[in-house]
Design a protein around this nucleic acid. Sequence first.
DNA 1: ATGAAAGCGCTAACAA
DNA 2: TTGTTAGCGCTTTCAT
Lengths: 339, 339
Amino acid sequence: MKPFSIKDIATRANVSITTVSFILNGKAEKMRISKSVIERVQGIIKELDFVPNQVARSLRTGDTKTIGLIVEDISNPFFSSIARRIEDKAYKKGYKISYSSTENDPLKAKELIEMFKSRQVDAYIIAPVPGIEEDIRQLMSEHIPVVIFDRNLPEMEVNSVVVDNFNGTYIATKHLLDKGKRKIAFVTVDVHVDQMNNRFLGYEKALKDKGLTVDKKIYVEVPFNSTDKDTCDYLVDLFEKNPDIDAVLFSTNYLAIKGLGVLRETGREMGKDFTIVSYDDHDVFRLHTPPISVVDQPIEEIAEQIIDIVLRELTIGDKGRKGDREVSKVTLQPHFIER
Amino acid sequence: MKPFSIKDIATRANVSITTVSFILNGKAEKMRISKSVIERVQGIIKELDFVPNQVARSLRTGDTKTIGLIVEDISNPFFSSIARRIEDKAYKKGYKISYSSTENDPLKAKELIEMFKSRQVDAYIIAPVPGIEEDIRQLMSEHIPVVIFDRNLPEMEVNSVVVDNFNGTYIATKHLLDKGKRKIAFVTVDVHVDQMNNRFLGYEKALKDKGLTVDKKIYVEVPFNSTDKDTCDYLVDLFEKNPDIDAVLFSTNYLAIKGLGVLRETGREMGKDFTIVSYDDHDVFRLHTPPISVVDQPIEEIAEQIIDIVLRELTIGDKGRKGDREVSKVTLQPHFIER
DNA sequence: ATGAAAGCGCTAACAA
DNA sequence: TTGTTAGCGCTTTCAT
């Protein structure tokens, strides 16, 4: 059975489709449609369980009430938590979220943007991958609201919500130094986005402030698309070749989780002489024995800021076109959770 | 600058929009459009970076190439992992995913279905909440493909992919009994869907097979929407009032994680005399000291089966309308991971 | 206070 | 081999 259309409603109510449309869009009052007609129409709508076709509406009005969310991997708790909160708030304003994972692949990211474009999403929330700048610029030139998060594109005048990554690793490293650690390994990923660079720089700066320098032997970059096994091999290698390491700072939670697995398998114990610290909190770290200190990103606030900016730009209306406001660049501070 | 339309392309190429449309849809060959025209048009398309408006296309063809995914909470790793894999496979077939979280609220679930309906999604993947049956029936009567997962609706003739929950807790409980445990607490949630019922029944059956019965004092139902603190209170209460418990079986991972937190705070040690087992694996359990045994659901396979069924129904084409195939009821087996 | 009709961008049946 | 055109369901301007 074909779903009902506005026309069916009009026919049954003996009014024109215009009238029905006005009623559907809450313009009945403004149009001074009689109470009796309104009630009759609404009765029929309810009775037939009629839902207006948003696709047709979108074609006509130009907006889809949909926001495109492009992240690295929706199954990463950091992203899915943010997705959840964004969804929540967007939903309350009548917006829906379409998501996609880039797997950190610039080509896929480009395709995704194109896909979203063809679907006419009203706004984009993007955790950028390297090389995406041009596409973002393109979106902006079309006055489509865009907010990037997680990773900054410092050269670009685009709305962004990021965490002070430099400071995050700085305080973490400083904490370790204050505890007397001197051989602090740094394990990161080989994706040289601004975010990761800054995490390294914070580490480096803290060492420098203490009169130390980065020791290349205990600095490890794990290729992003490594298999589980390869990742573990990198870590095993690090620990075996450098038994004198007294602390490890991981630049992302998934690496730290892998690290914990490796330490467990190799029987290396954590305690006074050997500590690890991770970036991004996770239940694993809280419940680990011993518990793991982390640099925690304020996930709620990140989501909050993102969706606020998006909704603000989306509802500009008269003054200036959408996406034409001043650029918002928000930097939030991470917290060090000592455990 | 307004985006280009098929008309712009046609004008610039000096052909009709039909021709452009055929070329866009890969029907150029069938329509025997000359090579030169094809090349000219494609050149212009590339040059202008033209992307066809999927909204218009959807309005015309009736399908949106979008699948609606309705889960309890996208930030739960179980759901986000499945979401990720579904996305992956759907993407390869040209489908996009729109997700929404129900928070286990029947009213919200109904609204979500309505929202998706208005957006004309081609198919639904739903982790059902209680009371959703009627809406699902409605979808099916409109020949829209639907697959439910995680929780079964045993009374309904609807495609489903579920895990044998009964067997999951049965083997877990049996394992504990074989280890000599006799006071095995069961901690679950007060959502009485088929899935949770079966988890309880499996526990009960294993006890019975050993000549034991369920002891209400060590059977706890935590209300679904409890705050963190309330949840913890329930657990603290359980442990305090029943110091002789020698094992706890948690029916979901988030409860088990809360449980670990409580045990840590109350200083109750795990070991030979006291064990816990969780449903659903999680990094926390693997890396915990001591490691926690779990009933693991085959996430990959679940996602695989879901998307296979959806895509199959979506591509039926001629023979019968969409969603008109025989119903697939898939039951997968959980694995007990002893740690 | 209500209706007629144009048109959003596209597909596909039909014409030429 | 290519073009003309109706129409998908809706919003909104202009008429009445």
